[in-house]
Every structure is written in structure tokens, then in C-alpha cells.
Design a binder for these strands. Structure first.
Lengths: 196, 196
DNA sequence: CAAAAACGGTACGGGACGGTATCGTATCGA
DNA sequence: TCGATACGATACCGTCCCGTACCGTTTTTG
């Protein structure tokens, strides 16, 4: 904003630190990662990190919120199946991402120990769910879904199999699998035959 | 088996060590837990632990296989819905168990770092799935399920929402939720209306 | 009673980590 | 040019941990 006197912070360092922190977190988890390793991977001195963030948890949370900006899909294809397929495939892409996919598995464990990480994780999940609920509302308005469905359960039925396959079974989640899950979901709820 | 000369191992210590190891693992994960903390919680000297297990990973795996004996539900109620409801509720009970529920969240992260833990985890999942597949086969023989269903996907649809709710959303999984998931599953696959 | 093994307690070596501090150099605005 | 700040490198402190070793004591078998 207002660069005071003195040498300004290097944006290359900012990005290198964020990337390295996320990679280290994905590899070793919060307690297992080390700030020294982040500094080494980023090609940066440890003092450069602690000049930006007062502690390790602030570093990780800041890095996570940077990637959150790049996410947030808002699909509106005009039909329920299209909306669900695109949003489900985008979730599958996150899981297949080498860093983010492992990060998801780590945060599930770390959230029980670090309230800051738990809060961040809850925010991500809530953001994703609100997109799903919005798609449900549009489908209800179109008559594609009955208006009294349990949207909480419905969202679980959509996302659950993907997370289960990625985190528990540790198998790849491809687009075909995402479509199969969506079609199973539509078999439960859809009031009109979905076009495919 | 054949107690040679000398003082025999204390079975109370065996059990105390297993319980303490599982609790510490559930609290802090494999890399975060410490053998000293296990010894203190078990009221046992650290030498008593290392006399039994050559390393920390052997301790944890041995403790995990002890609880595995107590699991392994084999429901056969004579009807598909009964089988699925009982096995799904038993999974929900595992998640609600204060130690095992947290253990499940930890092992998802630790399996990426420790092949021994990954192998153990995979064995547990496979054991559970085989019970589900057996229930599917019985249902197919009865005509309750079409014989050509994708059993892998079907098992994911059943277990996925429970794991998602427990691990990602961090909400309790009660029996009513388990039944809702089973009924949604039956709405997809069941060839005859399920009795409820 | 004697040998053998387990036990609690303790100490140690070797290493890793978070966070702080310091030093000389580099890069900005005025 | 000068003051102010960032940077890399390094050292440091206090803490923790795995695994081993040793002590004296206790419990079992023969």
C-alpha cells in the first residue's frame, strides 16, 4: 500500500515461501514440518520467514488462504446434473492435485490439535457446501428436486464417496467416478429423469 | 507358551501399554506421540515397553491389531436392509468411540508417511469391505440387488458419507444418520421395495 | 537357595526443532 | 548520498524425543 522508507519485501520470496510451506505441510503435516525445511525449499533464510509471520501456524494459515483464492467454483450450467458434475469434478481435481490432495489428508488429523487449522478447514468446507446448496436451490426452483429434501444429507451423499475414496482408500478420483456418484445421487432425489 | 526360568511378563503391563499407546496415538498421531508419554500414561517404565517392542512403530501396530480382534462384525439378518443397517451402525459406533474415532483421522494422514501404518490401514479397510461385499452377494442371490451392480462404487456410496461426516465435517454420526444413508443407497439399487 | 528374567527409575548420546539474535550486504525512497 | 529496511547466513538457547544402558529390586522356576 504505502511503501515506507527502506527496501521493500520481495514478492518472489512471498510466493516461494507460500509454495514451500504448502509442500512441506502436505509432506509432513503441521507438527512434522519444520520452518528450516520451508526456508531451505524456498531458497530463503529463516529470518525472512519470521519477518513475515510471527509463528509457524501463521505461516501455514496464510499460505492456505492464498490457495483458497484460486478455488471457489461457481458453476451454473442451467441444469442440476451439469452443476453437480462440474462442481464434483472440480473437487476431484483438487484431490488429484499432488500438493492439495495430500494437504486434505493432513488437515483432517491436524484440525484435532490446532484450533486455528480447524477453523480454517471448517471455513473451506462451509464455502464448498454453500455452492452445493445454491445449486440445490436452483434445481428446486426448476422442479428438478423436491423442495423438502434434506440438503445436509444430500450434500454428504455427493461429497462423501469422493472423500472416502481419496482419503481412506487412497485411490485416484477421476472424472468418470465423479459422474457415477452424481448419477447415483440423481437416482435418489431427481423428480424428473436427468438428461445425459 | 513355555515359561522358562525368570519372572514372566506382566499381562497387566501388556494391556496398559496397548491402551496407552492407542490413546496417545489418537491424541497426537504417530510422529507427535512419544514413547515416554506412553510409558507415563501406562504407569510403566520405558524399558518395559522397549523390552516388548523393538521400536515405536512396532508398538503402535501391535496395539492396533489388538483392537482389530474386537471388531469384525459379520451381520446376516436375512435381508439386505438389515445387513446394511447393522454394519453401517457398527461403523458409526467405531467413529463415536473416543479413541478409535480420532485414530481413524490420524491414520489417514500417517499412512502417507509410514508404509507399515498404511499396510495396516489397508488391511482394516479391506476386511470391512469384504463384509459388505458378502452382504451384497447374499442380496443378489435373493433378488434384492441386480447381479451386475458395481460393488466397489456401491460400497463407496455406503461408507463414504459416514467417513465424510466424521473426518471432514467433524460431526457426530448417529444411528439415524446411518439409516438415512442406507435408505438412500437402497433407493439407488434395490430392485424390490425394501421392508422398513 | 540360586539362576534368570522382568520391573521402575534414571541417565545419556545424538539429533531435530521453534524462535531469537547478530552481522554484513543489498535495495529502496528522499 | 543517507537513512531505513530486507536479505542470506549463522549461531544460539531451551526443549523435546528415540533408543540404549545400567542400577537395584521383585518375581518366578528349578
Amino acid at each position: 500500500m504505502k511503501p515506507g522508507p527502506g527496501r521493500p519485501r520481495s514478492v518472489e520470496c512471498d510466493r516461494a515461501i507460500h509454495d514451500a510451506a504448502l509442500t512441506e505441510y502436505a509432506d509432513r503435516g503441521f507438527d512434522g514440518m519444520s520452518v528450516d525445511a520451508v526456508a531451505a525449499r524456498a531458497g530463503v533464510s529463516k529470518a525472512t520467514i519470521y519477518r513475515r509471520y510471527p509463528s509457524k501456524v501463521d505461516l501455514v494459515i496464510s499460505a492456505a488462504y492464498v490457495v483458497a483464492e484460486e478455488l471457489a467454483p461457481k458453476p451454473d450450467t442451467g441444469a442440476l446434473r451439469g452443476d453437480l458434475v462440474t462442481s464434483t469434478k472440480s473437487l476431484a481435481n483438487l484431490m488429484n492435485h499432488s500438493v492439495l490432495g495430500r494437504t486434505m489428508r493432513q488437515v483432517v488429523a491436524d484440525a484435532g490439535r490446532h484450533p486455528d487449522l480447524a477453523e480454517m478447514h471448517e471455513g473451506f468446507v462451509k464455502m464448498r457446501r454453500q455452492g452445493t446448496f445454491a445449486a440445490f436451490d436452483r434445481a428446486i426452483a426448476r422442479g428438478e428436486l423436491p423442495p423438502d429434501i434434506d440438503q445436509e444429507l444430500a450434500a454428504d451423499l455427493l461429497a462423501g464417496p469422493l472423500f472416502y475414496r481419496h482419503m481412506v482408500r487412497r485411490l485416484p478420483v477421476d472424472d468418470a467416478y465423479a459422474e457415477q456418484v452424481v448419477d447415483a445421487f440423481l437416482a435418489v432425489y431427481a423428480t424428473v429423469p436427468s438428461t445425459r
